[in-house]
Amino acid sequence: MSENSLREDICRFGRSLFERGLTPGSSGNISIRLDDGGWLVTPTNASLGFLDPARITRLDGKGNLVSGDRPTKEIPLHSAVYETRPGARAIVHLHSTHAVALTMLPEIDPRAALPPMTPYYLMRAGQTALIPYYRPGDPAVADAIRGLSGQYSSILLANHGPVVAGDSLEAAVFATEELEETARLYLLLRNLNPRYLTPDQVDDLVKTFGLTLPAGHEHHDHEEPSA
């Protein structure tokens, strides 16, 4: 796919996310890794609903500005995900309401922020890690992401939002949407003792669809919140 087409895709998906209220104001950012090792990334202080393809930032493989507007301050987190997940070609970072709310709950397991609620959550987002709060743009967030050793394609930043990688921008967007909807389900069902997928059902999904989940995923029992 040409670079111009990728620029158009960033704008198209960004507008869709914005119009559905998944990334308000000038929050959130999107990046795509190019074949030459460089990136396309949304500019700083840019609304995903009103992006201009010609102003999308282009960085070289070392993160130097090549063209376009100044990049998002969240470059460290994008860089760390690409570094630890070589197969990732795109990253979506949002401030979506339900995913952010999930990060503030006391019972959340950092190794498995959501239980196995639906097959499509596992098929698209895998399992989700939660890392501690860092101020936006803090380079230390990159070390926290590196500490996950590339095991997770979906990560929640505490009090901030989701960071989701995919082998295409479409895949990253779909996985982000699935994560947000699963977080919404969790909040709706919290304290109601919902029925999650069993370990055998999860294993069947892993085998049938060739899913790669973090080691020991079947042992990450999600604690029930107290009433």
Rank of each mutant, 00 (worst) to 15 (best):
T128F: 05
G61S: 13
G216S: 00
G38D: 02
D200M: 09
T212C: 06
Q201M: 11
I30E: 07
P136Q: 09
A142L: 03
P199Q: 08
T44K: 08
R195W: 05
V164C: 00
G63A: 03
A172I: 13
V206A: 06
I30P: 04
M1W: 10
G210N: 14
L51P: 01
M123C: 14
T57R: 07
I155H: 10
G28Y: 12
L65F: 11
R89Q: 02
A125G: 09
W39F: 14
A175C: 13
S149L: 12
E181H: 09
E223Q: 15
S31N: 10
L114A: 08
E170R: 11
R20G: 06
A113T: 13
I145W: 11
Y152D: 02
V164W: 00
E224G: 01
G210A: 14
P214F: 06
G28K: 13
V81F: 07
P119Y: 11
V92M: 08
K73C: 09
P132E: 09
F18Q: 00
E178M: 10
L22Q: 03
S153G: 13
P43N: 06
H98N: 07
L77D: 03
G161A: 03
E3M: 12
V173C: 13
G68S: 08
N29G: 11
P115S: 10
R70A: 05
T42L: 02
T44C: 06
Y134S: 03
D200F: 11
R15M: 12
S226F: 12
K62V: 04
Y82N: 06
L114W: 09
G38T: 14
